[in-house]
Simulated scan of single mutants.
Amino acid sequence: MKHWILWVWLLLGTAWAQSDTIRVVAAADLQFALSEIARDFVRQNPDVRVSISFGSSGKMYTQLQQGLPADLFFSADEVFPNLLERTGLTTPGTVRMYAVGRMVIWVSHRLVQQGLDPRQLGLRILLDPRVTKMAIANPVHAPYGRAGVTLLERYGLLRQTRLAKWEEMTAGIPAYYDIAPLRRGKPSFEFVYGENIAQAAQLALTSTNIGLIALSIAKSETMERAGVFWLAPLESHLRLNQTYVMMRGQDRPAVRRFYDYIGTSAAHQVLRRYGFLLPGEKLD
């Protein structure tokens, strides 16, 4: 499959020439929640604009290392912001966790109508002979892809056969894991990769009818209208401690205001609505 990259770019605010623009790069699982948070912020701060680019955390980490201009980086994990901090590319002391991400297996109504309902079957749905392909974010650079792999491992659907770092797994999951349980009784089984978790969701929606995606995307209006999901237990996969950081030399008043706004009750309310856990928050 040909890999492709999609960046969703949003510009929120008015009065371009008279505004301080905050440049944000963010993990794709935030495309709905962070856009809403930024709109609320701009309404309260009309002298500020917020531009947001969404993509995979790993790709953005690499581009930030290469000089991509940005004020704030929101990752889907804690690894990439910490690496940037270690290399001196961030404002000291600004790495902060904003949420814990959740994973789901999302299934279209087309499959549910055939008796494949993830709410009853959970990951056992992947053993059904009618499930021959599944969308997943590329684990080479997408934290949700990495979490998806560990989730399948936890339930015995993958077994690692070749040691490699995530960023080295460029040959595809079957080159590093035995996927026999997913192939058993089927003509074939294929992982269909999105370059970020939003693309994986789009592939599930338009092509595979099933995918391992972020709860924050599964709760969007489009995905809820088209299918249903099973929420994976928090402890069943790589923990997605999602953090953000201010880039080096960008501690301007407007940037600091938005940085601090992420920790307010208003921003927390939006994050909760899209299924994120807040730092220190426990499951009911």
Score class of each variant (00 low, 15 high):
H109D: 11
R102L: 10
A28V: 01
S220K: 01
L30T: 04
L152Y: 10
K165M: 13
Y144V: 09
E190H: 11
R184W: 15
P92H: 09
M103F: 00
E190F: 08
T132C: 10
R119F: 07
A28G: 13
E221M: 07
L205F: 07
L240N: 04
V112F: 00
L283R: 09
S108K: 11
W230D: 00
A232L: 02
Y244H: 11
Q269C: 02
T222S: 08
E221I: 06
I52F: 13
V245S: 06
F80Q: 05
V228M: 03
L271K: 05
S53W: 14
I262D: 03
R130C: 05
A76E: 15
V42F: 03
D178P: 02
R146W: 01
W7S: 03
T132I: 10
I5Q: 07
L10H: 15
L283W: 12
P174R: 14
E168H: 15
K2M: 10
D128W: 04
S19K: 03
Q160R: 15
D128F: 11
R119G: 04
L212N: 02
Y259L: 00
V255I: 12
L277P: 03
Q202H: 13
A254S: 10
I37H: 09
R39S: 14
I213K: 04
T132P: 05
N138L: 15
V112Y: 00
L6A: 06
G13K: 06
I262A: 11
G249Q: 07
A17F: 14
M103T: 06
D260I: 03
L231K: 13
